[in-house]
Computed example of a mutant assay.
Amino acid sequence: MKALIHQKQKGMEGLLFSEMETPSPKAGEVRVKLKTAGLNHRDLFVLQRHQPEDPPLVIGSDGAGIVDAVGENVTNVQVGDEVIINPGTGWRNTSDAPPKGFETLGLPYHGTFAEKIVIPEENALPKPSHLSWEEAGVLSLAALTAYRVLFTRAKIQENQKVLIPGIGSGVATFLLQFAIAVGAEVYVTSRSKEKGEAAIKLGAVKAIDSNGDWNGQLENQKMDLVIESVGAATFNKSLDQLRTGGTMVAFGASAGDEVKLNIRKFFYGQFNLLGSTMGSGEEYREMLQFIEQYNIKPVVDKVYGLSQFKEAFNRMENASQFGKIGFKIV
C-alpha cells in the first residue's frame, strides 16, 4: 500500500510518500481502508519528536474509511462498515487525566496517512451520517480536544462570555461552534482580518486584532471563560480578560511554552487555571452525539492528495488555514 512515511531524518526532510507492506488485523483489531485523513499541528511536532534512528513511521491521527478486514473476536464491527477513527488508544472512560498507557495514532503507532490502517475495534465508530467523507476524515482529534476542554474541564454554561484567542485552527473552529451551540457568547482574536470575518460568519459576536489592545477592543468586557492554545505570546493577555473568579483552560502552546505569571494578581483574581489534552473514548462518543444533535460540521479549509503533503504541511506551518486541512486517500 502507499503511505506517507517518516524516517532517517527529522522534520519535513524525513517524509517520503512510498510503498509499504499492508498490515493485517490481529485478534480484537480491524483494518480500515481510508478514504480521507486530516492534518493536525501534532503532525508537525511528530516530525521533530520521531528520531532518525527510530523505525519508519506512518504519521497522521485523523481518518475515516470503510472496514475491509477484521481479526478474531471482533463483534461490533463488520467488513463494509463506514467508520470514523478515534485517534486515542488506552483511555476508555472519562477521568481527571489520561491513564498510563494512553497513546495517539501517528506516534508511537502507525497513523492514518496511508491507504489502510489497523486499529483496535473500539477505535472504529460509525461515521456520522450528516458528514461527508472529507468532513469525517478531519474531525476527530480537534473535535475531541474541543469537547473535553469545554464540557469536561470548563463545564461551559449558557450565556457565558467566552474568548478564543488565535481563531483559525481546527480546534478553535470547533470550540467556536460548540460554544455557540450551547448558547454562549463567543469572542475571538486573530492577526488576520479575514479569519476574524470568517469567525463572525460562524457566529462569533466580535473578532479583535491579536496585535492590538485587547481591553480597548473588547470595551473592557471581562470573560467568564478563556480558552488558551497559543501559549506564551498571548497567555497573560488572555488572563487579563478574565472576570474575577473566571476560568482559563489551556490545551496548547504553539507560540512558546514558558510564561511569566504574576502570582499575586492570579490569586487576588480568584482565577481557575485548567489544563486539557485530547479526551477519552467515552468523551469521543459523547462528542459524536453532540455534533449529530446540533448538526455541526468541521470547517474544511483545503483538501490535498496525499502525494501533495509538502503543500499541506507548509500551509499548516505558516498558519494560513482557517479550519481543517485534509487529505484525500482514495
Rank of each mutant, 00 (worst) to 15 (best):
A69K: 00
N220I: 14
E72V: 06
K328T: 15
F322V: 00
P87N: 11
E115R: 11
S254E: 13
G38Y: 02
P298A: 02
K161A: 09
E135K: 02
G65Q: 08
T22C: 11
L274I: 13
G305C: 14
G71W: 07
G90P: 09
F251W: 12
S18G: 06
L242P: 00
V74P: 02
Q51W: 11
G323L: 09
F251I: 09
L125W: 07
A143P: 01
S129K: 15
F102C: 06
A154I: 01
S169P: 06
E185G: 02
A143V: 02
R285T: 14
V138S: 02
G106A: 03
G168N: 06
D224W: 09
G137C: 03
N123S: 12
S18Q: 14
E53H: 12
R42Q: 04
V162A: 01
D224A: 07
V74Y: 02
L139I: 09
V186M: 05
A142P: 05
L163W: 05
L261F: 14
L4A: 08
V182D: 00
S61K: 07
A37R: 05
A253G: 15
I164W: 01
P126N: 05
G137W: 05
N314M: 12
G88D: 10
K2P: 04
G203H: 10
I59W: 06
N86L: 05
I156K: 00
W133C: 03
L144A: 08
V70A: 03
M316V: 05
Y109F: 14
K237P: 06
T152V: 12
G168H: 04
M1E: 03
T94R: 13
M287H: 04
K35C: 13
M287S: 07
T112M: 13
I167L: 04
G203I: 08
V182S: 04
S276C: 12
I5W: 02
M248F: 00
Q270H: 15
G279V: 08
A154N: 06
T247R: 08
L175W: 03
P52Y: 07
V149S: 10
P126Y: 05
D96A: 15
K195F: 01
Q308I: 10
I66D: 02
E115C: 11
A233L: 06
Q289P: 05
H41E: 04
S18H: 11
Q157F: 09
L261K: 11
E158A: 14
S210Q: 04
D54C: 10
E311P: 00
D62A: 11
V67E: 03
Y187R: 00
E219F: 11
A172P: 02
K237E: 13
T89C: 13
I200R: 10
M1T: 06
N159L: 13
A233I: 04
K33G: 03
E283D: 14
D96E: 15
N262S: 14
E258Y: 13
Y109S: 12
K155D: 15
Q293K: 14
P52C: 07
L242K: 04
A37D: 05
K222W: 03
K265D: 15
G326Y: 01
P98I: 10
